[in-house]
Amino acid sequence: METSKQNWTGKISVATIGATDKEGGTRSSQVTVGGETTLPYLFKEGDIPNAPVIAMEVLDIEPTDWPDALKKPFGDSLKDPVKWAVKCVEEYKAPLISVKLIGTHPDFGNKSAADSGKLIKDILQAVKVPLIILGSGDDEKDNVVLAKASEVSKGERCLIGDATEKNYKTLTASCLADGHNIIGESPIDINIAKQVNILISEMGFPLDRIVINPTIGALGYGMEYAYSIMERARNAALIGDKMLAMPFICLVGQEAWRAKEAKAPSSEHPEWGDEYSRGVLWEIETAVSVLVAGADILVMRHPKAIEEAKKYIDNLMRR
């Protein structure tokens, strides 16, 4: 019978996070993402060599706006980022840890670059999985904080971000010098996504060490914008646009847990049903929406949401 198969010529680049002693690092494992030669989960049309991976999020300060359902699985470890990271790896078997240095932001404690450098060093000591390191989003501060973080983790092949159209030079130079991967961020805009990658690569940065952060919204809170940007970028990449052919990283946890549907107590919205399941599922569902659009790395929070998203990924990857 008739079929309608696309002959894709493009391929998503393959990024490897983490360096073992063989590569001059101290990680016990590596995480590899990307390499797709087809649209999400259409195995009959091409290859999806690497399953999407879920990184667990650790913050450098105790979270203040997390609902109890989200705090509970971590207990006291939330007060100590190193213990928190250890718990993620040992108890929840995270293959990848994402450290967000939000506490360096002038509005959230203004921690120094030296403090952050020490924290990254301590986490690298305490856990042996690869690291993602994210700045606070304050350009000036990120330039000193991330430079320091890059320096202290030299050779560990971390994934560090975010570089933006207006602020990419310092971070690109650091990641280049210290052998890391970099995240290029764009505000739900495919042209800027491409532009950021061009700017980074023009500094001599290899394309296969760039990951795209398309800045997603939570389910119900603008998810569809990033969803369509991701679909457009993936289609463009598969027909040969190398400047969009990078794996996607999606900050699922931080977005999903801002949603009212994830946080509101049952007393406020009895019609929405069980509070615990609702919050967890809002995070799972936000993950589902970006996975269908082609996400490669998900940064998530709740262990139960992560467990279920992992199960769903295993199902998707079963061909």
Partner: peptide
Amino acid sequence: PFQETAEASTYVAKYAGIVVLKNRNPWS
């Protein structure tokens, strides 16, 4: 329910005209 919601949503995004579910919790 968690897995069913994820599965059903995949079909909603990718072309299903109707998706029939077994669970009917408001939260799912």
